[in-house]
Every structure is written in C-alpha cells, then in structure tokens.
Amino acid sequence: MIVQFKPSALRQTRWYEYLVRFLLGGAMTVVAGLIAARFGPVIGGLFLAFPAIFPASATLIEKHVRERKEKAGLPGARRGKEAAALDAAGATLGSFGLAAFGLVIWLMIVRSPVWALVFAAASWLAVAVLGWRVRRWL
C-alpha cells in the first residue's frame, strides 16, 4: 500500500465520528492525568504519549474501508481489518520514533533546549522512516 494524503476522505467522515475521536482522545488524556496524579509525572507522561485517538481511528478506518468495498459489491470485512492493521503498524513505528524523540530530549534538554528539540525531531523522523523502510523489506 502506498501512503498518501486524500483531502476528499475528510468529507467521508461523519460529524459523530469526529465526536468519538474527540471523546476517546479526551478520555485517554484524563486517564493519563489520573495516573500522573497517583504515580507521578514520569509514569503519567508515558501514558500521555499513548496515541489517544488511535483506538477510534482504527475502528473508523475499518468501518470506512468495509463500507466502501461493500458498496462496490465486494466483501469488505477482510480488507477493512487489513487497513486497520496497517494503521496499527504505522502507529507502532511512530511510537518507536516517539521513543527516540524522548530519549534525545532526556539526554540533551538541560544542556541546550533548542538543539535538543532539533535533534529530537530529526531522531523521530529518522527512526520512523527507517522503521517504515525496514517493515517494507520484511
């Protein structure tokens, strides 16, 4: 599958699907705040890094792909699950990039906040792209 941006896909999403994403994202943030209050900001920050809208996005991707295939007269359940799985793989690779970002910030923030941000962003990008390329080779 080729990664691409399709602005027309924004029109396919119904208003209540945005609401679901907003509510799940907010709920994940509240849970991270409660964990931080109980166990401290370091542990809470780990949970805040969880992609808050991922659960809603994965279910909506599956639903949209399944509906599009069924509208064309094809069985869409398998393709919907495959599309959601691909999104999950991308989220995982993005999480590795996020870990690289956090590590660089942790190592450099005291000495040079500006350079820490620059190198952390570059690390995130490099790890995410490298992960995607390695995944394609496998």
Rank of each mutant, 00 (worst) to 15 (best):
F50H: 08
L48R: 08
R111G: 12
I43P: 07
L93C: 07
R133N: 04
F39E: 06
A27G: 15
F47W: 03
I105W: 03
A126N: 07
I105Y: 02
S57T: 15
A85H: 11
V20L: 01
A91F: 11
H64M: 00
H64Y: 00
G102L: 01
W124A: 04
A121K: 06
F5N: 07
A91L: 14
A121L: 09
P75A: 05
S95T: 09
M1T: 05
L19H: 03
L23H: 12
L19S: 10
L138A: 06
W137G: 06
A84C: 15
R136D: 13
F119L: 11
T59E: 01
A85Q: 09
F39N: 12
A99W: 10
S57K: 00
I2D: 08
K6F: 07
G26R: 07
F22D: 06
L103T: 09
A120K: 03
M1W: 06
A83N: 01
P75D: 09
R68H: 02
K71P: 04
L34D: 14
R68D: 05
A52G: 15
A37R: 12
L125P: 11
I105D: 14
L10R: 09
F96P: 10
W124I: 00
S112F: 15
W106I: 06
R136T: 10
L117W: 13
G44Q: 12
T92M: 08
A121M: 10
I109K: 14
F22Y: 09
Y16C: 02
V127P: 13
L98D: 10
F22C: 04
P51L: 04
S57C: 10
I61Q: 01
V65K: 00
L107G: 01
T92Q: 07
T92L: 12
G131V: 06
Q12S: 09
A121Q: 07
G131R: 00
Q12I: 06
V65A: 09
E82Y: 02
R78I: 04
F96Y: 14
V20F: 00
L46T: 03
E67F: 13
A56G: 02
